[in-house]
Design a protein around this nucleic acid. Sequence first.
DNA 1: TGGAAGTGGAGAAAAACCATCCATCTACGG
DNA 2: CCGTAGATGGATGGTTTTTCTCCACTTCCA
Lengths: 234, 234
Amino acid sequence: MTADRATTTGTEPPRMRADARRNREQILRAAREVFAAQGPEAPLDEIARRAGVGVATLYRRFPNRTDLIRGVAIDVLTALGEAALAARDAEDEPFEALRTFMHAALDLRLGSVMPALIGRLEADDVLDGVRQDAADPVQELVTQAQAAGTLRPDVRFGDLPLMLMRISRPLAGGQLAEDGDLAHRQLEIYLDGLRAPGTCHQRATLPGPAVDLGWFKRIRTRLIGNQPPARPRA
Amino acid sequence: MTADRATTTGTEPPRMRADARRNREQILRAAREVFAAQGPEAPLDEIARRAGVGVATLYRRFPNRTDLIRGVAIDVLTALGEAALAARDAEDEPFEALRTFMHAALDLRLGSVMPALIGRLEADDVLDGVRQDAADPVQELVTQAQAAGTLRPDVRFGDLPLMLMRISRPLAGGQLAEDGDLAHRQLEIYLDGLRAPGTCHQRATLPGPAVDLGWFKRIRTRLIGNQPPARPRA
DNA sequence: TGGAAGTGGAGAAAAACCATCCATCTACGG
DNA sequence: CCGTAGATGGATGGTTTTTCTCCACTTCCA
């Protein structure tokens, strides 16, 4: 039942119809977003709807919730490991590589699966593999950046993913349009806090919307009356 | 601790039995925690259970969910304003005051009510009052710290509460024992990112548990098998 | 073009949640 | 110390949400 993996990890051909595979990826993407917004207990119907498929299709691919979460986890962790390697190759300076990676990880919505990984999923060879493949390059980036003296020496590995888990969850249940940009802005500030004391005179230019007090109040009033019910309708 | 009564129309005597008032505060505290963990749609049963009272007691004090959210909001915002003033008076340096305030706000779980405030609650004189009382001192701290040159000039008011909303939500659905300490540690890093370029050579000593790669893996394995279902049993 | 794999949506069964009622209990003024 | 108004808890019924299967129909691919 777990035979078909859409990921191109192994040498075995997954033998899956093209539309089926496409739907599978749609489901995974939708699940990632919905899990990130509502947590790992989000209704599966909504995931199916967001993916543009029927519920039966979702249940065919992932017979139960745990399977779906595991699928998303493998998907995200795989992409995460690749992002770490890509960042390492793209940037010369280790801290800059770390920074690039963090922003990529934020876009991947790491926080959508980490809580489930921590609390719900039991270990597994495939899962352990991708987890290792995701964690090791990051640890390497940390080590290198600290050796280069650009990452402050008192931070540890956990300070990166644990913060990503927090930042990647949408504010206010996903109602804020600027949420993604705000997350990147706040991540940039956090990254500046991670710089080594010697190098911290070079602060990053903060991207995204700078929310002052007036805007902050406007965010509220703009949203009031928009969506009285929690769940947006189709 | 704060906001003993629900409304402040001076004509009505508060006259509440001692045990009733005590229960009311228990409910508010429980609601704050549960809202922070699960969002403003959390089941009211769980809040009552966490508060150690029956459901009827909760419904008597707060006839519907909106009333409860409003109660929590007033409670938190009141305490928040007081914390801001206290921090201002306790610290000479404006940035240090800001730092003190942020840690206090984190303990108050600002994130438990902000999403609801943003999306669900409609304006109201009392609410607007406490909101103003909470926001104004913070804005003042920001202005002063930037004038003193210790807070970087490109941050804005929103960078503080919006980050608190993210940090104050428990990781992994409230299963992590070290969660509170981790949040304070990560807040400290964020605060270092908020320092002005000139003053950032003085980094704070990071508190709390430093989670390295090994510990990170251990967090997971320790929790596996602890609570397979999402909700802790009754 | 045949047929196996894939699909969507209805709908029953189960679970979660809300909100009220009432018998019992307790703080507190006299 | 007592009477009582106010407060409490948990059972309960009704409603909504969510799960997950079934089957007639469609689509890819050899």
